[in-house]
Write a protein that binds this DNA or RNA. Structure first.
Lengths: 124, 124
DNA sequence: TGACAATATACGTCAAATAGAATATTGGTT
DNA sequence: AACCAATATTCTATTTGACGTATATTGTCA
């Protein structure tokens, strides 16, 4: 993957906010939409942009698309995502996004179950 | 400095190539122009873009503007520039730019003298 | 199957970024 | 002062990106 592509993905604040959220946990579109207070279309478009370049991956579960950071990414990308994580919390938007996310914890706990079920028969 | 600004600077390949060159040594516009085989205007415009956000600094020496990476940059920027440096050599363009630069070494050695003169009276 | 919920895609529009041409600026030289 | 070399700026055309509206897709459930 070309280096410049990474930066082209990261050069939009909405996408940075999305990645910041996904760095916490897998989420479905509606949760992201709610935290960012952006339209469904906008969130969806940014997500598909990120997916196109492999910065996120998507898995459908029933009606919901669960987006997450891929477990395994190219080395350059991994380095940059780590660097991003190191720097991002110094900015208020990102911090408050995480707080908003925490408040919704109950709403998205089921996702953790789906992604890494403790009991493999316990599917929703 | 806002994080997204950093990425907006880095999301253009020409600018990445410029930064890659400047990571080696201070250079004047005409050298960059030659290595990148881009027009004077284009190089100048990208440089002024980078300067606007503090990714490079400029010092005039006679007819020449000497561009260089600032010694001291904000922490987030520094982290990202380091990350960039770690990753950039895996791509052919950047590697060959450095080789082209080496071939011009003789042409730009005077810059090193100007930037950090061994003998302070030895100005061109 | 019909209706609904969650998400995606298509298309048009507007703003911002890029590149090129022409011109301006700055400093040195004669 | 006239001229030249190096670089910057302005103006304009073109491209690209973001966003909104409308619509399509996919899966669930009655």
């Amino acid at each position: 993957m070309k280096l410049v592509r990474i930066y082209q993905c990261l050069c939009d604040e909405t996408r940075l906010r999305i990645l910041n959220l996904l760095a916490q946990r897998p989420l479905c579109v509606c949760h992201i939409q709610e935290v960012l207070a952006r339209s469904q279309v906008q969130v969806s478009q940014h997500l598909s942009r990120l997916k196109k370049d492999g910065l996120v991956e998507a898995n459908r579960h029933q009606n919901w698309m669960i987006y997450s950071l891929p477990k395994k990414v190219p080395q350059a990308l991994e380095a940059h995502l780590r660097c991003l994580q190191d720097c991002i919390q110094t900015e208020p938007v990102f911090k408050s996004d995480l707080q908003a996310l925490k408040k919704m914890k109950a709403d998205c706990d089921w996702i953790d179950e789906v992604v890494s079920p403790k009991n493999s028969t316990a599917q929703v």
